[in-house]
């Protein structure tokens, strides 16, 4: 029995929805970069070293407007702050893994988090393969977009909805399987309130602070329901 093969197979099946989404979204990034005249070198190097869908789309903007580095740093912080939450909730699974943990943390995108956060404890190899496969799909998508953008301009409107579908489905599934809904409701309601008050571009950090505060305030009453 080859456990490494089994982990890879299980991880591949798990990541199929992300495969579809990342190829499509990656193509979007590649096309935009190509349209701005960037070479294949940059189109591939960006996803290798800064693996993040939302941030790469923003990078195209920052590049196109020749943004200064301080502006770039502040917008990165605003957009990416939610990743602190992912790290906090994966501490129990990841923190004793050793050097491999750095790659797992580096590759913890929204989609990888959505796939892994509810899973029972798996082998390190399984975590690695899920993270690595998603990373490969994303790089492949960006490269394909770059090539396509150099050859012909095309677009199928709406395919990027696949990632929204992934999040909506994960939410419904988690809701259905949970015994207690206070934490999920806190996440939805506080984010929604902050989205309305602060607007689409600035709501994530206030939402995170609010969620953390409310969850901690509810601790005494709610902790026993989450074991």
């Amino acid at each position: 029995m080859n456990t490494s093969n089994e982990s890879a197979k299980a991880a591949f099946v798990k990541t199929i929805p992300v495969f579809a989404g990342y190829i499509v979204l990656g193509i979007g990034f590649g096309l935009m970069m190509a349209a701005h005249g960037y070479s294949m070198f940059w189109i591939v190097i960006y996803p290798v070293f800064m693996y993040s869908g939302a941030m790469q789309y923003m990078a195209v903007d920052l590049l196109a407007t020749q943004a200064n580095l301080v502006t770039a740093a502040i917008s990165t912080f605003m957009v990416q702050a939610r990743h602190i939450f992912y790290g906090l909730s994966m501490l129990g699974k990841y923190r004793d893994i050793g050097p491999l943990r750095h790659y797992l943390a580096f590759g913890m995108t929204d989609e990888t988090y959505a796939l892994l956060c509810r899973e029972e404890k798996h082998s390190d190899k399984y975590y690695f393969y899920v993270t690595f496969f998603n990373h490969l799909y994303w790089i492949a998508g960006c490269a394909l977009g770059g090539i396509a953008g150099k050859l012909l301009p095309f677009e199928l409107k709406g395919v990027d909805f696949v990632l929204t579908a992934l999040f909506v489905t994960s939410f419904i599934e988690q809701w259905d399987q949970a015994k207690r809904h206070s934490a999920a409701l806190t996440g939805v309601l506080i984010s929604l309130a902050c989205r309305i008050i602060f607007g689409s571009a600035n709501f994530m950090i206030p939402a995170m602070v609010g969620i953390m505060a409310v969850l901690l305030l509810m601790r005494r009453k709610e902790e026993r329901y989450y074991e």
Binding site: F85, D110, S170, Q174, A183, T186, S191, L192
Partner: peptide, 11 residues
Amino acid sequence: LPFACMGMLLV
């Protein structure tokens, strides 16, 4: 947090 985060990601 995994529950709250999925709610946040939904929004």
